[in-house]
Design a protein around this nucleic acid. Sequence first.
DNA 1: GTCGAAACGGACGGTGCCGTCCGGTTATGA
DNA 2: TCATAACCGGACGGCACCGTCCGTTTCGAC
Lengths: 225, 225
Amino acid sequence: MAESSRIDGPELRADARRNRGRILVAAREVFAEHGIDAPMAAVARRAGVGVATLYRRFPTRDALVRAAFAQQMETCARALTEALSDPDPWRGFQRLIETVCKLQRQEQGFPAAFLAAFPQSMAAHAQARGRVERDLATLVRRAQAAGALRADFHPSDLGVILLAHCGLVTALPHDGAASRRLVAYLLQSFRAEAAHGTLPPPSALSLRDLPLAPESSQRQRPFRA
Amino acid sequence: MAESSRIDGPELRADARRNRGRILVAAREVFAEHGIDAPMAAVARRAGVGVATLYRRFPTRDALVRAAFAQQMETCARALTEALSDPDPWRGFQRLIETVCKLQRQEQGFPAAFLAAFPQSMAAHAQARGRVERDLATLVRRAQAAGALRADFHPSDLGVILLAHCGLVTALPHDGAASRRLVAYLLQSFRAEAAHGTLPPPSALSLRDLPLAPESSQRQRPFRA
DNA sequence: GTCGAAACGGACGGTGCCGTCCGGTTATGA
DNA sequence: TCATAACCGGACGGCACCGTCCGTTTCGAC
């Protein structure tokens, strides 16, 4: 029994495991309400746990954020796999975007986590990042070959629209209509028949570049100038 | 001479006026480098001025942010006027979006200020907000009447895309290509010929709702939970 | 040149969060 | 039941930022 946790470290005592679970639930709640910059102590209090316990399980804020939203990340990964196995290339493409955006819209705090946690977890196992990028490229090429996705769509555009959508739901956390509208507009403009004229050149963005990104880097460091 | 400043308060002494200018320049620089959450003291230091002087001129951070980006706001307002007077309704519509997005992309820190400062300045002179909303609605209706803008475009969509674009340039401050791509995609999907199928219903977003919005509200308050 | 008002800036107390330390508590296996 | 190791949590020192207070300096009118 309890064999499953052997993979990541030595066994955890029963009470410790229970507390770990409480902390993750509390973290999702607090991050949803106050953003991922909420005080660690607030998470601990909500979990009914001391600060030390929190730090013992999750030494850094990023570790907590990553663990708290690991399930959502997993959902994203699964959505990509499902998209690739959809017999209709366009529908697979469309559903991937809609699924990820729906998740960003529903799970408050996930967008910020998506931005903040991705880089490190990516840098950690670079080969996982490579696989994601390869799968995305495959998804795009397949939809283009079927004549459904416009030929000048570039895989980096996926990152662009996900970041833009993140920004939108962060600014308007309760406005699902706005999010759905944006996604609908974008999907329409990605259809092959929507291609009129030429687009500006694609971004050089790759998943590897996200680290630079958002307030994640500004949050921690005390400030130097 | 110096008549122009009579409108907002009694005359300022020469040195005071000079320092005020320095502070605004420094604020734009610091906000661009470190975001609008940068310490007030950093702005003062960069301006070669004491903290007290900074607080004397701008009692709150929001006041400083607003003043620092007033010029950019003014540019936006002018762009709206010009858009309305363009003989080609679609071109006016297109140029407004491109101008505002270009400004957001070029002036680092402006997007955040756009989000954070708009609400208050809007609430301040509600009739100015009303005018902006009316002008935007006119711009939209005019472009639709000309058969260039799709009929199901809703004025609130303008807010939606500006917020999304804000998010994008905040996440990738140095990636102009990404910003241009997003704008190009969106503009294409706004063309009347791009309308296929039906869109989800528009957001209830109006400019009046922006106040709720972003980290601006979370930044100041100490935290309650 | 003189003088009062205006402006200046450094220093300082207050606050909130971080992350560790350590004495007490509890689970677990014999 | 008991011993021990794992675990717990409050308290505490440190740090960065805020925003005001007050003695000093500078402007500019006469």
